[in-house]
Computed example of a mutant assay.
Amino acid sequence: MAAACARALSKVGSGPVRRFGSVSYLLGNVGPRGSRRAYGTGAGFRSTPIPVRTGGGGVLVFLLGGGLGFYQTLKPNQNQQNRADGDAQVSGGPKLTLYQYKTCPFCSKVRAFLDYHGLPYEVVEVNPVMRQEIQWSSYRKVPILMVDDQLQLNDSSVIMSSLKTFLISREKSLSDILRCYPEMKSRNDGGKEVTEYNNKYWLMLSEAETAATYPQKDTQKEEMKWRQWADDCLVHLISPNVYRTTGEALASFDYIVREGKFGTVEGFFAKYVGAAAMYVISKRLKNRHNLQDDVREDLYKAVNDWVAAVGKNRKFMGGDKPNLADLAVFGVLRVMEGLQAFDDMMDNTRVKYWYRRMERATLNHEGRSQSQQ
Rank of each mutant, 00 (worst) to 15 (best):
M1L: 13
C5I: 14
A6N: 08
S14V: 12
S14N: 10
V17F: 03
S22T: 05
Y25F: 11
L26H: 12
L27S: 06
L27K: 07
V30G: 08
G34Q: 04
A38R: 12
Y39R: 10
G40C: 01
G40E: 04
T41E: 08
I50L: 09
I50V: 15
I50M: 10
G56K: 12
G57T: 12
G58A: 13
L60F: 08
V61W: 15
L63K: 14
L68Y: 07
Y71V: 05
Q72T: 08
P76E: 09
N77R: 13
Q78L: 09
Q78D: 08
N79I: 04
Q80D: 07
Q89C: 06
T97G: 02
Y99I: 00
P105R: 00
S108H: 00
L114Y: 02
Y121K: 09
E122R: 13
N127M: 00
M130L: 13
Q132C: 03
Q135C: 12
S137Y: 01
Y139R: 13
P143H: 00
I144R: 02
V147W: 01
D148Q: 04
D148I: 03
D149V: 06
Q150G: 05
N154H: 05
N154T: 01
N154E: 00
S162K: 11
L163Y: 04
E171D: 07
L178W: 02
S186C: 08
V194N: 09
T195M: 09
E196G: 13
Y197G: 05
S206H: 03
A208K: 14
E209N: 04
T210L: 14
A212N: 11
K217P: 09
K217E: 13
T219G: 10
K221G: 12
E222V: 10
K225M: 11
Y243V: 05
T245P: 03
T245I: 04
T246D: 09
G247N: 08
G247A: 15
A251M: 04
D254W: 02
R258S: 08
R258G: 03
T264E: 10
E266S: 07
G267T: 01
K271E: 04
V273C: 12
V273F: 03
A276F: 06
A276H: 11
K286A: 14
Q292C: 07
D294H: 08
R296M: 12
W306S: 02
A309H: 12
A309V: 11
N313C: 02
R314G: 03
K321R: 15
A325W: 04
V329E: 00
V332C: 05
E337M: 12
G338F: 00
F342G: 02
D344M: 10
M345T: 13
M346E: 11
K352C: 01
Y353A: 14
R356F: 08
A361I: 01
H365Y: 04
R368H: 10
S371R: 13
